[in-house]
């Protein structure tokens, strides 16, 4: 039981740490770092699904019959690109918010919005 799933459980713990950072942190950059941990951990989850015990990397090799599953690898390649694209856009928003408000702390942003 534990040996079957310990891998997934650690990955879930990683996801949740990332998720936690996104929710509780007031700093906009730190939130994104948390979001990145969350996403990267989901990637690890997928890649774990693809693992075949005793298999090798899915590149055709003489004399090898057991390969890891290439499909989750492809999905995660796409997801990594989507992730970095999201981060780039988010960071450009952070830069603009800093310019417009002079802060990137959530609480101060909300205060400054109430002022006007």
């Amino acid at each position: 039981m534990v040996t079957d799933f310990y891998n997934y459980w650690i990955v879930i713990a990683l996801m949740m740490i990332g998720f936690f950072i996104v929710i509780v942190q007031g700093n906009l950059v730190k939130k994104l770092i948390g979001l990145n941990i969350f996403q990267t951990s989901v990637f690890i989850f997928y890649i774990s699904i693809a693992k075949v015990e005793g298999g090798t990397a899915p590149i055709l090799t003489e004399g090898v019959v057991l390969y890891s599953n290439p499909l989750p690898h492809v999905l995660i390649l796409t997801a990594i690109v989507v992730g970095i694209a999201t981060m780039a856009l988010a960071l450009s928003l952070v830069v603009r918010i800093h310019k417009a408000y002079g802060t990137i702390e959530e609480e101060e942003l909300q205060e400054r919005d109430h002022e006007c």
Binding site: F43, A50, A57, Y67, L77, I80
Partner: peptide, 11 residues
């Protein structure tokens, strides 16, 4: 270690 070399490269 999970045999996902392409993904490793990209990550």
């Amino acid at each position: 270690t999970m045999d996902a070399v392409d993904v490793a490269f990209t990550e």
